[in-house]
Computed example of a mutant assay.
Amino acid sequence: MAKLNLLWSKAVVRLSEPKLKSLFSELKLHDKLEITYKHEKVGGKDKDGLKEAELRNKLTQIMKNYNLLDQADAVDDPSKYQAHKAMNVASDKYINKSIFRDKKLNKLWEKAEHAGFTAEELDTLKEEFLHHQNKIDQYYSLLHDVKNGPNEDAHENSIDENLDRFNEIDRAEESSKTKDYIDKANLIRDQSKDIKEGFDKLVVLTAKGPSSKDFVEPKVQGLWRIALDSNFTADELESLKVELIHYENRLLKLRHLQADTALNEEKYRIHKKAVGSKPVEESFIKDQIKKHTRKVEKIHLDIESRILERHGGEL
């Protein structure tokens, strides 16, 4: 929107590259929220203006976070919107690909951005991600207190690469452990478990996006979506996903055999007409198709029944 273009034009001459990347990401998300609101307003919603006020407060907070509050009056004045380069022509260097310090969390967020969520849903999901990043920060802060902290590059690594470090605390000599030391060690252990469970929750939330696709085969993707809405634990979902990957591989192999047979159908017909019998190759492939079809159907029914049992419903 024009007012965001104006704000961006002011920011590019004042902020550092890292801050510009962060601001660009926030303004793009806010732009989506503004567009959604515009459609809702045309439809007769937000007659009391509460949604509009909420969006205004969000933008004000963004300006405050980046020391751009002095541009508030200009942003509210439509006469000043013209002659400012649009944000969407900004160089790729401003697209923030590292919103979160934890690289694993950042990679998941990239997936979430392309999962088909609405702007409001994505905004809500981002709050969940930020909350999780705060947990990671608290974990490292506590770890620093107990062990003089991780190295300077710790935040650049995924949390999974560091969670096991607290185990070294238990190997310290008993005589060196104070009550405070032991309490913090136990807290680190609890926080590491909480971080893992929190990340697993974000994985499930991201996978529920309308455009999220973990599997190529629609039948397999359908089973996975039902599983996500069932009462499986994170570990059970992870195990089930591995099963579905193997199932999909078998299904794709079956599709390949069926396609190969269809492509060679004319060749088989000519051979049969010439010699009066089916070619050995045709009989072999069709036997393979029957064999794989039975296996695939059995696997599908097994996985489907286990998913529906936990889902409490039917397909």
Rank of each mutant, 00 (worst) to 15 (best):
M1V: 08
K10P: 01
K10Y: 15
K10E: 15
V13D: 15
R14P: 02
L15T: 11
S16G: 04
S16R: 13
K19H: 13
E26A: 09
K28C: 10
H30A: 06
E34Y: 14
Y37S: 10
V42E: 15
V42S: 13
K45S: 11
L55F: 12
T60Q: 15
L68R: 12
A72L: 15
A72E: 15
A74K: 14
D77L: 05
P78I: 10
P78V: 07
K80D: 08
A83I: 10
K85V: 07
A86N: 07
M87G: 05
A90V: 03
S91P: 01
K93Q: 11
N96C: 13
K97V: 01
S98H: 13
S98V: 04
L105D: 01
L105R: 03
A112Q: 04
E113M: 10
H114P: 00
G116C: 06
E121G: 01
E128D: 08
Q133A: 03
I136K: 02
D137H: 09
L142C: 05
P150W: 12
D153C: 02
N157L: 15
N162G: 11
L163R: 11
N167I: 09
E168A: 11
E173I: 06
S175A: 12
D180N: 12
I182E: 12
N186I: 06
D190F: 09
D190S: 14
K193H: 09
K193P: 00
K193T: 11
D194I: 01
E197M: 10
K201H: 06
L202G: 02
S211V: 00
D214M: 09
D214C: 01
K219P: 00
A227R: 06
A234W: 02
A234G: 05
L237F: 05
V242M: 08
E243N: 14
L244G: 04
L244V: 03
I245T: 14
N249M: 09
R250G: 04
L252T: 06
L254P: 01
D260L: 06
E265V: 03
E266I: 02
K267V: 04
K267I: 05
K267S: 04
I270E: 04
H271L: 02
S277M: 05
D287N: 09
D287S: 09
K295C: 00
K295S: 09
E297H: 07
I299S: 15
D302R: 13
D302V: 07
E304L: 10
E304V: 03
L308V: 11
R310L: 14
H311I: 03
G313Q: 10
